[in-house]
């Protein structure tokens, strides 16, 4: 249990750090003599600097772990950079893939298969296609990564207990972590759509949004619809965000949180395919995940969007509520 108090088998046993350690000790050895006792001076330690709450001077719970600090913590991570970079790169890869196209395209399946055949008809359609192909899995993984990794990875590094010992109030820690994770998720979504729109427009032009399900939409109107689609996708992904975040709080393994959220999402998608489940299916978090396609028709079909939004927000609220409830009570033993 007391893992920290092992008998120290690794007493400077680490090869890579060995020379550093000894040289470091040498330098500190020389300087140690010169460290005057005044180096821990009275400067900061005056009774006047102590708040009535007993806090150290300058400490205020509402100022701990500022959004910017957490944003930078996450920004410095390779996985954040890679995920965001891939979001920007994906439209480019799709574009290049289309350049290899022989021009023969199989007719898409279903009424919405036309999204594929219209993909190269303009920047808006290209963006829509990029979203269409990433919505069901890629975006789920990315959101699960940002939201599932955030607390669990701190726990596995051991830095979580130091944040709590600052002390960052637990609810505040969780709220900031959640906000930052959601910000990165939104950033990923916008990056994907923005890059796709940019290079799609450069390559295929600024033309109306087409689909077989409805009349073509003028670019201005089409852009609005595209933004609405993005908005709904973001709302649906809140379920993943909620689930991943809850798992992140429960487990100390970042992989478990991310993978667990994605697995459950896939499970829900599979169950949603089984029509025998009947009305139960509409309670599945993924049931309304494709309702955004209704935004492409004229007039806009919002019924399923509304239901999907209700479902997503309910699930996200429950998951986040559980996460906060759990985290503010649990013993941090990692």
């Amino acid at each position: 249990m007391m893992a920290g108090s092992t008998v120290g088998p690794t007493r400077d046993g680490d090869e890579p750090g060995r020379s550093e350690a000894s040289s470091g000790s040498a330098s500190s050895g020389t300087s140690s003599g010169s460290v005057p006792s005044a180096s821990f001076g009275t400067s900061s330690r005056s009774a006047a600097g102590v708040a009535p709450s007993g806090a150290a001077a300058g400490y205020r719970p509402s100022r701990t772990l500022p959004f910017g600090a957490e944003f930078r913590r996450q920004a410095s991570r390779r996985r954040t950079q890679l995920a965001l970079g891939f979001m920007a790169l994906l439209p480019l890869i799709i574009l290049i893939a289309f350049q290899f196209g022989s021009g023969e395209e199989e007719p898409g399946r279903g009424e919405f298969g036309s999204l594929v055949s219209f993909a190269t008809s303009g920047g808006l359609n290209f963006t829509l296609f990029s979203l269409f192909v990433s919505a069901s899995f890629l975006l789920v993984v990315v959101v699960a990564l940002f939201c599932g990794d955030t607390v669990a990875s701190e726990a596995s590094w051991g830095s979580l207990r130091y944040l709590l010992a600052i002390p960052v109030p637990r609810a505040r820690l969780l709220a900031i972590k959640l906000l930052v994770a959601l910000t990165y998720s939104a950033l990923a979504l916008l990056l994907l759509a923005g890059t796709a729109l940019l290079i799609g427009t450069l390559r295929y032009g600024w033309s109306p949004l087409r689909s077989t399900v409805a009349a073509q939409l003028e670019p201005g109107e089409g852009l609005l619809r595209l933004l609405a689609v993005l908005g709904y996708l973001a709302v649906v992904l809140l379920v993943v965000a909620g689930l991943a975040f809850l798992l992140s709080v429960i487990t100390d393994a970042a992989l478990g949180a991310v993978g667990g959220a994605v697995l459950l999402w896939i499970l829900s998608s599979i169950l949603d395919q089984i029509t025998a489940l009947g009305a139960i299916r509409s309670f599945l978090p993924t049931h309304y995940s494709t309702a955004w396609l209704g935004l492409l028709s004229t007039p806009v079909q919002t019924d399923n969007i509304v239901r999907g939004t209700i479902s997503a927000i309910s699930y996200a609220t429950i998951f986040w509520g559980l996460a906060f409830w759990r985290f503010t009570r649990k013993d941090v033993v990692s």
Binding site: V50, A51, S53, G54, A55, A56, Y59, P61, Y162, L164, A165, I166, P167, P169, R170
Partner: peptide
């Protein structure tokens, strides 16, 4: 208690 402001006076 967990999260007490006075924790800020403890280095750990």
């Amino acid at each position: 208690v967990p999260g007490s402001p006075v924790l800020s006076r403890i280095g750990a």
